[in-house]
Each structure stands twice: as structure tokens, then as C-alpha cells.
Amino acid sequence: MNKHIADTKNNDVIRPTQAEAEAAVKTLLLWLGEDTSREGLIETPKRVAKAYKELFSGYQQSPEEELGTVFEEVAGYKDMVLIKDISFFSHCEHHMVPIIGKAHVGYLPNGSVVGLSKIARVVDMFAHRLQTQESMTAQIAHSIQNILKPLGVAVLIEAEHMCMAMRGIRKQGSTTLTTTFTDAFETDIANQVRFMTMLRSGS
């Protein structure tokens, strides 16, 4: 009998073994009416399990690890830092089909800044989990706020959901926009306007 493996990031979650994951994929293929013994599908359960490990690798990462190093020598810089057009793909937690989009993240430094690639890594980390766009937007903003403690954070995500394009209503090209503002962005509408202006104008 296969023993379950305890999740290293969440002790409350018991993870099935690799063999159990592959068996589950095989069960789905059989449920679809496929012949799992044919040449093209023999290795599919193993390939799908391997792909899922990569696609959902965000569960094994933490924002604290990604944002742990900051730079305090910023020559007195206090203005907004804006990272635009961070491409990502995620998966809808309702149907497990892709969400494809871009994230835009701005923050007001409070004496220190973080490497630009770290912001992109945080976006990527949360994208590599089952998500709703609303939750992902809030998770990115609040993680940056709570760990870096800037004066404020602004996050805008625009994405297309394949659960709308591939199934159900089947409308391609429809884009969803979500925002989350914290602290100085939440309390001062002028900061929100400036964030949106910089985002749309490229200034």
C-alpha cells in the first residue's frame, strides 16, 4: 500500500504519492472513454503528473523567501516603483483550465527597494497555484505590503480566462481586470490615479 507524503509547506495537507497521482490521471482517461494501453497514452499519466508538479510549483514557494533581500542604498529615492507587463499563466480553481494575462505592480518605497525580478517572482509564485484572479491580485499586493512594508502597494491584473473561452459561454478575447490597493494607494485617490496614468501612458 502506498503511503501518503506530508506536505512540507502545510502540515495539514496530506499529499498522495507520485504513483497515486499517476493512477488518478489514468482513471480520468478511462472515464473519458480512452484506451490507456494504446501507445500514445501509455506514458501520459507520468507526463501529466510531472507537468502538474511544474505548473503548480507555487505551493512549494513562499513570498518571504522571494522578498527576503532588500536594498537600502537608494540615494534618497522615494517615488513610485512600477513594474509593468509581467506575463503569467495560472489555472482557474473552479475548472483547472488556464488563466493567461499580465500583472502590473507598483509600490512606494519606505527607505528600501527590492530587486525588480523579485516582484516578478512573487507574481509567478502565486500564478503557479490554483487561483481566482481576485484572490491572486490580493495575495500579490498583501504579500508585498506585509513583507517589504512600503508606504503602499498597487496591483492591477488583466487576464483572459479559458473557462470562458473554451467552455461554457465560449467567448474568446474577453478580458477581466482586477485591482488591489494598500495603505497610501488605498487612502489617497491621487496615488491611484498616478499609478493608472503611468501604467497607461508609459511615462
Rank of each mutant, 00 (worst) to 15 (best):
residue 42 I to S: 03
residue 123 V to R: 03
residue 150 P to C: 08
residue 1 M to F: 10
residue 34 E to M: 07
residue 71 F to T: 11
residue 134 E to A: 10
residue 171 K to A: 13
residue 104 H to Y: 07
residue 150 P to E: 04
residue 19 A to L: 13
residue 159 A to Y: 00
residue 64 E to L: 11
residue 95 H to W: 09
residue 106 G to L: 06
residue 34 E to T: 02
residue 132 T to V: 15
residue 146 N to Y: 02
residue 135 S to P: 00
residue 57 S to Y: 01
residue 173 G to Q: 07
residue 112 S to L: 01
residue 48 V to C: 10
residue 41 L to V: 07
residue 87 S to L: 04
residue 47 R to K: 15
residue 96 M to Q: 12
residue 83 I to G: 04
residue 165 A to I: 03
residue 46 K to D: 02
residue 181 F to L: 14
residue 19 A to N: 12
residue 41 L to F: 05
residue 195 F to H: 04
residue 194 R to W: 00
residue 187 T to V: 13
residue 115 G to Q: 06
residue 190 A to C: 00
residue 127 A to Q: 04
residue 33 G to I: 10
residue 42 I to N: 06
residue 112 S to Y: 00
residue 120 A to M: 06
residue 17 T to H: 09
residue 201 S to G: 06
residue 109 P to M: 06
residue 178 T to N: 10
residue 171 K to G: 00
residue 53 K to L: 12
residue 195 F to Y: 06
residue 102 K to E: 10
residue 98 P to G: 02
residue 65 E to C: 01
residue 81 V to H: 07
residue 34 E to L: 03
residue 170 R to L: 08
residue 102 K to G: 02
residue 68 G to S: 15
residue 14 I to Q: 14
residue 82 L to M: 10
residue 165 A to D: 07
residue 65 E to I: 02
residue 141 A to M: 09
residue 12 D to R: 14
residue 96 M to A: 15
residue 83 I to D: 02
residue 1 M to S: 13
residue 179 T to H: 11
residue 146 N to E: 14
residue 1 M to K: 12
residue 3 K to A: 14
residue 192 Q to V: 09
residue 74 V to Q: 06
residue 70 V to K: 11
residue 71 F to R: 05
residue 200 R to E: 11
residue 176 T to K: 10
residue 13 V to F: 13
residue 177 L to K: 15
residue 161 H to P: 09
residue 97 V to Y: 01
residue 78 K to A: 12
residue 91 H to P: 03
residue 25 V to R: 09
residue 6 A to D: 13
residue 155 V to H: 05
residue 51 A to W: 02
residue 197 T to V: 00
residue 180 T to V: 11
residue 87 S to A: 15
residue 23 A to D: 13
residue 93 E to P: 10
residue 93 E to A: 10
residue 98 P to K: 05
residue 19 A to D: 14
residue 120 A to S: 13
residue 40 G to S: 05
residue 43 E to A: 15
residue 100 I to V: 15
residue 163 C to N: 04
residue 119 I to E: 02
residue 1 M to T: 12
